[in-house]
């Protein structure tokens, strides 16, 4: 049953789901496999449109994804979904439960859903998310929806992979100061206020509106604010239209090209960072790190002193 990587890549490109599943696993396990796979498929990527969904835990991201998938399927588009959940910082384990909300698409041959755990990555995505997007793209997905972990204020990496970012809010999560803070509220192209049958929905919308009015609108895109419901379809259709409009705006205004360049840069920096961390652990063992930790803790040395010692050892990678 063990196929070579090249065989898997060929099968994946021809539409084999099992091969795609295995390719994503390889990408998650090991960045050198990622490098090889990407080198083989890169020319085939760049065709899919990427929609990012972010928002706090329990705000209804997965349910919204489920409804958007239905909208795209009505147009007979092939959809890929990547849903990210957190890895335990203590055990390294994870419960990946976003699929539960996407039941209606489990057996649809043109929907591929993959759950990924953050595996220590900050920013709301996992290290391999951007690679997995490329795999789904080469597989032939027309639309790829990426659902971040339940986000706090700084999990903003989605903006580095998505064409359109939807920020989901729910009524009752805090006053206007929350919308004025830097971070997640700055990255939305579209705002969805979910669970819009709850009290406080108008206030929530007003606060987002005020936040948007206060921020400088440099590029002429007017951010829509859409009411959505986990248990009804009307809001989802409106959200779907808003994504379409944003896509049209990006193409017509030339912002799509700029976005792609920004993404290329972000991808590069992300890979370099990960490579650096990996090399760091190749040079310095976990035990030695522990020793450094001890020295720092009992004030034998300060962290900057230790870094001075480490840097020369890393030179061969620079």
């Amino acid at each position: 049953m063990i196929s070579s990587i090249d065989e898997l890549i060929q099968k994946m490109i021809s539409g084999d789901k099992r091969a795609l599943g295995k390719i994503i696993t390889l990408m998650e396990e090991n960045s050198s496999s990622s490098a090889y796979i990407i080198s083989q498929i890169y020319a085939l990527t760049g065709k899919a449109y990427i929609v990012g969904i972010t928002g706090p835990p329990g705000s209804g991201k997965s349910s919204i994804v489920d409804k958007l998938v239905s909208c795209y399927r009505n147009e007979n588009l092939k959809v890929g979904v990547i849903a990210i959940d957190p890895t335990s910082p203590f055990t390294g384990g994870a419960i990946l439960g976003d699929r539960i909300r996407m039941k209606s698409h489990y057996t649809d041959r043109d929907v591929f859903i993959r759950s990924m755990a953050t595996r220590g990555n900050l920013g709301g995505l996992s290290r391999a998310t951007s690679d997995a997007i490329k795999a789904l793209d080469a597989f032939g997905s027309d639309i790829i929806i990426v659902e971040t972990v339940g986000a706090g204020q700084i999990e903003v990496d989605i903006v580095k992979v998505a064409d359109t970012v939807i920020v989901i809010s729910v009524p009752g999560m805090g006053d206007i100061i929350q919308t004025l803070k830097a971070g997640i509220m700055e990255i939305g192209d579209i705002f969805a206020v979910n669970k819009a049958d709850l009290d406080g929905v108008e206030k929530c919308i007003l606060e987002i509106k005020m936040m948007l009015e206060l921020s400088e609108n440099k590029n002429g895109w007017i951010h829509p604010i859409v009411k959505t419901f986990g248990n009804r379809d009307d809001g989802a259709n409106e959200l779907y239209e808003a994504i379409k409009n944003h896509r049209k705006y990006l193409l017509e205004s030339g912002h799509h090209e700029k976005k792609k360049i920004m993404r290329g840069k972000a991808d590069l920096i992300n890979i370099l960072q990960n490579l650096f961390i990996k090399n760091l652990y190749d040079v310095i063992s976990e035990e030695e790190m522990e020793e450094f930790g001890k020295k720092i803790a009992n004030r034998e040395k300060d962290p900057y002193e230790i870094i001075e010692e480490i840097i020369p050892r890393l030179k061969k990678f620079l």
Binding site: S88, G93, I95, I100, S115
Partner: peptide, 17 residues
């Protein structure tokens, strides 16, 4: 999960398909 595995949990009433 506590043993360090990634668990895909799909909930009740699943079909074999």
């Amino acid at each position: 999960r506590d043993a360090g595995m990634e668990v895909i949990y799909t909930g009740l009433r699943q079909t074999p398909e």
